[in-house]
Structure formats: structure tokens, C-alpha cells
């Protein structure tokens, strides 16, 4: 057997797709040809590479996602029931048939029309449509995962939820509210800190700015206080100076935090002198 033939057969050999006769012929060739033998050996060695296992958190995240999804389905079903079939827009309801059989027939009709129209569309157009749909789905998924994780019992899961929020480009108000709730009320300092950091990227939203000012007022942990002071100073919110002054008036404030308040006010152009007024 020549090398050329051997190379042709190699992929089948590797996939166990040769009959015994072809197999032994090829192995005979390997015995006398180092090059082909090495290629088969590389395949064998490759198979011996082990891989790490995923962390247990992967399953927890999957479960959280599935639960969030089922909850979402349940909510949608309830909404549809209470709104008396509002899935059909008002202008359609007038002629949309009430009998299921007719509804089905209509649906099939639409499907056929849709398929026909689909055929007429260019492949490019369809691909673009699919892509944007895909983006939208992924966007929704990230929101959902972030939300469901932020409601978990374990602090590390909530932390993950906060970190998921970084992947949301345009958060809806639910995600922002969850992050703000977390920064205000989460019992874990780590989680509150992470939420404060995560909110930095959404600081252009008025609700976030307002929420951050409120969060600073409630904060007892010096670490979180400092993180929030830095954030409010950096985003130069007009309410920042007021919030900082209010915090500075607290006599039980830790020294490091007080120092940060003063630095912050200076940065905002409201240093000691104007503050003392």
C-alpha cells in the first residue's frame, strides 16, 4: 500500500469505519511507514487528553434559568387569561374567528402565506432577520438569568446574577430595579459592592442615579459607602454633593469614609470652604 492510499483511508480507520481486511492492510503499512504511523499515533494521543469538569455552579445556573423560564411562561399564561385573550390585537379581534377549528385553519393559512413569502425573500434578508432575532433572544436571556440569580438564597449566586447584568446592553427597568434593590438591601457586603460597580455602567439612567443617592443614605458598610461615594462623584450627579454632605453630618461615620466624603466634595468643586458655609 502506498502512503497516498493510506492517507485516504486514515480518517475511516480513525473512525472505526474500515472492514477487518482493509484495517490490517493499513496497519501493515504503518509498520513500515513512520510518517503515517505518527499521524495515527497523534490521533490516539489526542484521545488521551483529559478535560476538567464544569463547576457545580453550572447546574445551579441552569436550574435557575429553567425555573425563571417556567415562571415566565406561567405569568404569560395568567396574563393572557386575565386579559381575555389579548394576545390578539384589538383591530384583529373583530374578525378573528372564535371557534378553535377556524382559528387553526386561519393559522395554517398564514403559515402557508408566510412560507411562500419566506421563499421570496433573499437569503441575505432572512439571515439578517434571524441574526437580529438571535440577538434579541440572547439579550432577553441575559436579563432573565441576571434577574433569577439575583433572587437566589446563596450570596455567591446573587453575586453571579449581578455579574450577569454586565452582559445586558440595554437593561429593562426590571433589571435596573433589581440591581438597585440589591445595592440597597442585600445582606451581603460583597453582593452590594458588586451591584454598586455594576450600576456604574448604567449611570446614564435617571432612575439609577436617583437610586444610588438613596442607597448611599441607607448604607452602613464603610466599603460600600466608599464605593457609592466614588461612583456618585464620578458620574457628577447634581444630587451628589447634597448626599455627601448629609452623610458627612453623621457623627458615627468611620474616619476613612469621612475622608472620602471630603475628597469627593472637593472633586465636585464643593470643598471644605463652601461646605462649611
Amino acid at each position: 500500500m502506498k502512503c497516498e492510499q493510506a492517507r485516504e483511508q486514515l480518517p475511516d480507520y480513525l473512525a472505526d469505519g474500515l472492514d477487518p481486511e482493509e484495517r490490517s492492510e493499513l496497519e501493515e503499512h504503518f509498520a513500515g511507514c513512520a510518517s503515517c504511523r505518527e499521524e495515527a499515533a497523534a490521533w490516539t494521543r489526542l484521545g488521551e487528553l483529559t478535560a476538567e469538569e464544569p463547576s457545580p455552579a453550572l447546574r445551579a445556573r441552569f436550574e435557575a434559568m429553567l425555573e425563571a423560564y417556567e415562571e415566565g411562561l406561567g405569568r404569560r399564561a395568567r396574563e393572557q387569561r386575565t386579559s381575555g385573550g389579548s394576545a390578539v390585537p384589538g383591530w384583529l379581534r373583530g374578525w378573528w374567528p372564535q371557534r378553535p377549528a377556524l382559528q387553526f385553519a386561519c393559522s395554517v393559512g398564514f403559515l402557508i402565506v408566510g412560507l411562500g413569502a419566506g421563499h421570496l425573500l433573499t437569503a441575505r434578508g432572512a439571515a439578517d432577520g434571524q441574526l437580529s432575532q438571535l440577538r434579541e433572544e440572547v439579550h432577553n436571556m441575559r436579563e432573565m438569568v441576571a434577574l433569577s440569580l439575583m433572587q437566589q438564597q446563596s450570596a455567591s449566586e446573587r453575586l453571579r446574577g449581578v455579574n450577569w447584568s454586565y452582559r445586558v446592553d440595554r437593561p429593562d427597568s426590571e433589571v435596573l430595579a433589581a440591581l438597585l434593590r440589591t445595592v440597597k438591601y442585600d445582606p451581603s457586603v460583597d453582593v452590594r459592592l458588586a451591584a454598586a460597580d455594576a450600576l456604574r455602567q448604567f449611570s446614564q439612567y435617571p432612575a439609577v442615579r436617583q437610586g444610588l443617592v438613596e442607597a448611599l443614605g441607607r448604607q452602613k458598610s464603610p466599603l460600600v459607602q466608599i464605593a457609592l461615594i466614588d461612583l456618585l462623584v464620578d458620574i457628577r450627579d447634581r444630587r451628589a454633593a447634597g448626599a455627601l454632605r448629609q452623610l458627612g453630618a453623621d457623627t458615627s461615620l468611620e474616619y476613612v469614609v469621612r475622608e472620602r466624603v471630603e475628597q469627593g466634595l472637593e472633586k465636585l468643586g464643593m470643598g471644605e470652604k463652601s461646605w462649611a458655609r
Partner: peptide, 30 residues
Amino acid sequence: HRVLFHFYLRLTGDRDASEDLVQDVFFRML
């Protein structure tokens, strides 16, 4: 999920990315 995790880990060498991607795959399945 393990086999998918290994697929991504072998392609990317990045554990965190691989876990995120596995999660993403199952979500897309839904």
C-alpha cells in the same frame, strides 16, 4: 452539559467562557 463544556473548553481553553456558553446553549434550546 459535560460534553458541551468539554467542546468549548477544548476550543477556547477558557473555563468561564465555556460555562457561560453551555448555559447559553440550553437557553437557546428553549
